[in-house]
Every structure is written in C-alpha cells, then in structure tokens.
Amino acid sequence: MNLLNMFARRTSAPQARERLQILLSHERASTGGQPDLLAKLREEILEVISRHVTVDQDKVMVKLDRGDAVSMLEVDIEIPNRSELRKVAAG
C-alpha cells in the first residue's frame, strides 16, 4: 500500500500535463473557429426527436467524454411507450 501511494504521488505531474493537453486542445478549437460543435449537436438532436415525440426534459441525459483522439456524446432520451401514454391520458 505504501509503495502504491508513493507511486501515485510521483505520477501527479504527468497527469496534470496530460489533462491540460487534452482540455486545451478542445478549448482552443471551440474558442477559435467553430462554436462548440457538441453543444450544437445536442441541441439539434433533441429538436428532431421532439418533433415526433413529446420528450420530458427531465428524462433526457446528456453525457460527454472528451478524449484525446475522439469525444463521445451520449444522448439518452426516455420515450414513453403507447401503453404508458394511454395511462397518462386516462388518469
């Protein structure tokens, strides 16, 4: 455990360096040229879906993971099925 702790402490500066390099490559891209692409994608995806189904804004989860080579935008939307809709209409 002690050895592990020592190792973890030793690697903090390289981690800082790596985190900064990834973060800044994104920030430079978003403040320089195009506005935040991922924000735009999120907005338009939600717009298309809500054109066809009623989406509860509280049931939408958006996750973002910015990586070195690729970024992952995860949009998780809960769409009520028909029986659920009927229940709501009846109740």
Binding site: R9, R10, T11, S12, A13, P14, A16, R17
Partner: peptide
Amino acid sequence: RGEMLKVDD
C-alpha cells in the same frame, strides 16, 4: 520529484 509540472511541460 514529479509532484509539480516542470518548466518544459
């Protein structure tokens, strides 16, 4: 000791 960003970093 690797506890702080180096000048070169």
